[in-house]
């Protein structure tokens, strides 16, 4: 088939027009929903924080660290960590009962392989961090105390490294 120049330009112009209309519709939808999506994520995060510290009545956010309070009593700290796993980012929340002791670790979101990488959600792995000194959350080969999962090394290593990196960065400026 042969197309005249005019037909070709018409085709290009038409497709361009469709894409421009599509892009503007999408940015409109995005701007209409962005605030609500952020609110949802914030609510979800609060849910996780409440799960970690059931007695929580309030918290302060300062320099990437959450200070969790029961009225005036400081219950502990929490921070988020994130690292690429086997497929996509794994987002984690770490709770501390004091400056060094881990209260618990929660996986906020992950997209690991179902049945294999998703074992990072299971108790034997995720439960090992409770009570650990935050400085010991490193691989055993690097002198730490944290175990990876056989067969899901990439996913479980990502969790451990995410926590140790984030702890190093975010706990440096801890006060109180």
């Amino acid at each position: 088939m042969r197309f005249s120049i005019i037909k070709r330009f018409y085709a290009i112009a038409f497709l361009t027009l469709v894409v421009i209309i599509s892009a503007s519709l999408l940015s409109l939808t995005y701007s209409l929903t962005a605030e609500q999506i952020k609110l949802r994520q914030h609510e979800q995060f609060l849910g996780y924080l409440g799960e970690m510290f059931p007695e929580m009545t309030g918290f302060e956010y300062n320099d990437e660290l959450y200070y969790v309070y029961d009225d005036a009593l400081l219950l502990g700290y929490a921070f988020t960590a994130s690292k690429a796993g086997y497929s996509g980012d794994i987002n984690i929340m770490v709770g501390l009962s004091d400056k060094e002791t881990v209260k618990g670790v929660l996986i906020i979101s992950q997209t690991e392989t179902p049945g294999i990488g998703t074992r990072i959600l299971d108790e034997p792995f995720i439960g090992q961090f409770a009570g650990m000194n935050v400085n010991d959350i490193r691989l055993r080969s690097e002198g730490g105390q944290a175990d990876t999962i056989t067969g899901a090394t990439v996913s479980s290593k990502a969790v451990i490294e995410a926590i140790s990196q984030a702890a190093k960065e975010k706990l440096a400026g801890i006060n109180g």
């Binding site: 085709a11 038409f14 939808t29």
Partner: peptide, 23 residues
């Protein structure tokens, strides 16, 4: 234009899907 109809349809569909997804 019939030579670009498939890309046009796909762009239209993808736009609506993304709108649904965000909603």
């Amino acid at each position: 234009a019939s030579i670009v109809r498939i890309p046009v349809f796909i762009v239209i569909i993808a736009t609506f899907v993304t709108m649904v997804s965000l909603t």
